[in-house]
Design a protein around this nucleic acid. Structure first.
Lengths: 357, 357
DNA sequence: ATCGGGCGCTAATCCGATTTAGCAATGGAG
DNA sequence: CTCCATTGCTAAATCGGATTAGCGCCCGAT
């Protein structure tokens, strides 16, 4: 079919040198191994003319390194959120001449096993194990044998694996501060989780951490949260139900919704009760889901830094690969990536009359 | 670091046979090459015990096939829409023991070139060239040298490349029929494109094809579209503006929005004018964006079959790889994937009094 | 006894690079 | 004039499989 690829042997022959010499020159080790300027130039020029490109498969066989990393997620590739994570990883990898194998496990341990095997059969240089939701995962033992990074996840059992996660606690603080900065001190309700750390969707690490941050920031400001409703899952319908429920008995001035889909439901409930955002009720949320900017009014939210998470995971993985190569010890550091606040139009200054007592 | 992998040589030695024999047995060609039952069983058992897995890199070097395909898109990996496309491709590939390299070009020809090179350096068996929006693309010449498929795109210049696309014309017909079936014959407006085929976002193939289908179905039913507004881009704000503009001068009974984001804007405009969906105005749309089911009322829309597109592209690619192997001729067939209607709650039966004339 | 042929398995080569070990030529020192 | 070092390059092994060519052995036929 296609004209055969130009190989190192072709270059060597055309330049009138041995394969060894050609290889030496092209790998940049010609200088230290005393190849003459003359020959070096000749090889370089020939390679250029012939448009020689080294075959990475072959190199991989010899050196064991394929300039490839495996990106395994539970179901990450499918969600918009996670698409950015992949994009970040893709770009960071590309900067170093690496490619990404993508794989989805759908939470199936058997599939995960197969996938990891398939990647190891292809001699990937490292692995990124990503999770759709921030949570703890069981680390397959196959992973511990090679450079790997957890993305958006923590190991269930302590393992010497580095992890990259969004800084949810700080995000919680930031959400709270958005309201505090706008002068809100009363009638602040939480929708999605709380008041206790146990009131949240199961397995949701983010819920706990956000709640911790929120309580911390309010605590430091001497502000008490008026109330909270947990949701079994963070979907619009639960946000709608919880907010409706709240509105039957209370008159909130501000809501912190635990994610944008919850907020979407809250918007609807408020609308049903004839309440305006942000004139009557301010709302701040988390995630910066694409819909956040389409909602009316556009939603102020603390963004999940998917793109940055992906990039960071690759950076950490490269450090890990280096460590592996140089025989360093595994550490298992946890890296937190900042979650930026996206100020939009769902928060208004508090006009509440401060209660006398 | 990790304990060395078990190789074919290990299996052969442990089973007391030559590498050749072991290879023959394990590749299933033992029978035809007269390896005895006894030896065959011994090799198989040994391989099992040692947990032998062939090194695909090595095999790739010898056979030239890496059981890997490259998925190159302009920016597809990043959008939720496209995530499903990748997911479909991933699963279809997995069914055959193939892995996917993912790459994004961001519309940059230079990057695309680099990416294709990187993939060829890794000896991918085939390529999928995907586009985020349905459109025509310039096919890099590197692609024509190997099995490849266009996904969600058509070649700008005629090329013997198969393409996989959503069946947009039929989708247009289906959208129209949803309204016709509900009894709508009057006050039907188009938001996003039309009335002429030229009134549409540039480069949007989907717009043209949907419009063709819509006109065809209405034409066949003897129904005339009351009006149409084109949008420079299919975003909520333009949908909002176009619909507002429409409402100032007309009283539509039904809208066909050219995608869900346009529909989202239309919902807002109708809400502003105190009109209810679907009681006052029925709406049908395209894409089945995730928000479509979260809108209130949930939006009836003709879905882009991303997952199926991804699967289909892989299927077609495998056919292409086979063709390449067996020396068949390239054809360049266009495959259309059906767009299913998602009936939700934004369309109500027409209660309009039929005009006498 | 010899030969042809099927059977059952293996030696050797190849894929395209990297890497180790080492060879030939040159020049300077002794 | 010999010996050793250095310079500049190459032969050969290696990675882990797939594949081609072919080697012994045993059997029946001549």
């Amino acid at each position: 079919m296609s004209p055969r690829r130009v190989t190192l042997a072709d270059v060597a022959k055309a330049a009138g040198v041995s394969r060894t010499t050609a290889s030496l020159v092209l790998s940049g080790r010609g200088r230290e191994l005393r190849i003459s300027q003359d020959v070096e130039q000749r090889v370089l020029r020939t390679a250029e003319e012939l448009q020689y490109r080294p075959n990475i498969v072959s190199r991989g066989l010899r050196t064991g390194t394929t300039r490839t990393i495996g990106f395994v997620s539970d179901t990450v590739a499918t969600s918009r959120l996670a698409g950015d994570m992949i994009k970040g990883a893709l770009e960071a990898a590309r900067d170093r001449g690496f490619m990404l194998f993508i794989g989805e496990t759908e939470g199936d341990a058997e599939l995960e096993h197969l996938l990891l095997q398939a990647m190891q059969d292809r001699q990937v240089d490292g692995l990124i194990l990503a999770s759709m939701f921030t949570r703890t995962i069981k680390v397959p033992k196959a992973v511990t044998a090679m450079p790997a990074v957890l993305l958006n996840a923590l190991p269930k059992k302590p393992a010497p694996l580095p992890a990259v996660l969004p800084d949810e606690v700080e995000a919680g603080r930031r959400a709270a501060r958005v309201l505090l900065d706008a002068g809100h001190r009363d009638g602040i309700h939480l929708i999605g989780a709380g008041p206790s750390l146990r009131d949240r969707p199961s397995e949701s690490l983010a819920a706990v951490e956000r709640l911790v941050g929120i309580r911390e920031a309010f605590g430091a400001a001497g502000v008490k949260v008026a109330g909270a409703r947990a949701c079994p899952d963070w979907l619009p319908e639960y946000g709608l139900a919880a907010t409706r429920d709240l509105l039957r008995t209370a008159q909130p001035r501000a809501l912190i919704c635990f994610n944008d889909r919850i907020a979407m439901g809250a918007y609807q409930a408020l609308d049903d009760f004839g309440l305006k955002v942000p004139a009557d009720v301010s709302i701040v949320s988390f995630d910066d889901h694409p819909i956040a900017s389409w909602m009316r009014p556009p939603l102020t939210t603390v963004a999940l830094p998917h793109y940055e998470l992906g990039r960071k995971a690759v950076d950490v993985l490269f450090a890990e690969i280096d460590r592996d190569r140089t025989g360093g010890d595994r550490v298992g550091e946890v890296h937190r990536v900042a979650m930026p606040v996206r100020i939009r139009e769902s928060v208004a200054p508090s006009s509440a009359v401060q209660p006398l007592g």
